[in-house]
Design a protein around this nucleic acid. Structure first.
Lengths: 110, 110
DNA sequence: TGAGGATATGTCGAATCTGACATATACTTC
DNA sequence: GAAGTATATGTCAGATTCGACATATCCTCA
């Protein structure tokens, strides 16, 4: 079942999903927001790997740490959209690239 | 001169631009980031007005305050992309809408 | 003129996010 | 299986962003 896998991934990333408001109870805004984060996470990892950079190298470039980069790519809840988007720009992404990452292929799990 | 007007707007919004690194010295990442914020600000105001909502009403909807909404629309530096994007979603924006706001008409001043 | 609604600006303590670091796990290559 | 390299996870103090509130400015209409 798709939703189970997705819920597991979301919960692993620190989203409170399973309690009072069951997963399917996420409001449209909430799920749009979470989905956006996953898309950007994926885009970040893809771009970094495409450029043959290690997490350490990217971290240095954005004046952050390897652990932050790992968390960005994992979709960790402690990472802001600001940091994700700044990082994509640091990898040379344009507005067009960003728009494509947001609007392109689904970030859905499984 | 375009850049003067833009610099004034940026400085008014709290970006440190005029000191050591002159405006034209903003790195590609920095100006992409600032430009993105302006685009989202504009999109937010446009969408709010299109829906005939006051700042107070939007604030209530996103569980924030009128002053935050005003600052969002002003491109104030104390506002995160997270809040801006969450607000757009709260106004019913889709990923496609968001992508268009990011990739569409320039947010350049004057 | 002035009352009322909408928006702008400044400030605050609380909440969230940050970089850094330590440490763990995973995968090669020897 | 040790050493080396890459990535993942947990924690923390300091920085940033938050909602809320007070207050100011700007319109419009009577």
């Amino acid at each position: 079942m798709i939703d189970e896998a997705r819920q597991r991934r979301l919960e692993a990333q620190g989203w409170q999903v399973g309690t009072a408001d069951d997963f399917l109870g996420l409001s449209a805004e909430e799920s749009a927001y979470v989905d956006l984060r996953l898309r950007l996470s994926d885009a970040l990892r893809t771009q970094r790997q495409r450029q043959h950079l290690t997490q350490v190298e990217l971290a240095r470039r954005i004046k952050s740490s390897q652990s932050r980069v790992a968390k960005m790519e994992a979709g960790d809840a402690s990472i802001s959209l600001d940091l994700l988007i700044r990082s994509l720009f640091a990898l040379g992404a344009s507005n067009r690239d960003l728009a494509e990452a947001i609007n392109g292929a689904s970030a859905t799990v499984a």
